[in-house]
């Protein structure tokens, strides 16, 4: 599982070995299904989804906007929700340090 994910992510960024394409928005969407449902919108930039539809298979956006800020206000979560707050609590020093230390192990 890990190795497949690894190659997938490498392929999403750099393309399949041998092909020099950077036109992999479509693949990004396909492969993200293998991963957890949370990653569904992993590589769907705002606006580019519509463009892909209009341009058909030619998903490369030659004149895409040059912008490093990635804001997706549509999916902004409601952080007034107690459950959500609880989910990030251990990312703060006020949370459970032992639990945070185990993160990633």
């Amino acid at each position: 599982m890990m190795s497949r994910q690894k190659t997938n992510l490498m392929q999403i960024v750099y393309g399949k070995p041998g092909s020099k394409a950077s036109t992999l928005i479509k693949e990004a969407q396909g492969s993200s299904e293998d991963e957890e449902s949370d990653d569904d919108d992993f590589f769907k930039p705002k606006g580019e989804i519509n463009k892909k539809v209009s341009e058909g298979t030619d998903s490369q956006n030659f004149d895409g906007e040059d912008c490093s800020k990635f804001t997706n206000h549509v999916t902004l979560k409601n952080w007034n929700d107690e459950e959500l707050i609880a989910s990030v609590r251990d990312r703060f020093v006020t949370g459970d340090w032992a639990k945070a230390a185990r993160r990633g192990q």
Binding site: K6, M10, Y14, G104
Partner: peptide
């Protein structure tokens, strides 16, 4: 320069 990109599934980071 090519990066080796590995997802860390336990933390959902890369």
């Amino acid at each position: 320069v090519k990066f080796v990109i590995t997802p860390d599934s336990s933390t959902e980071t890369v």
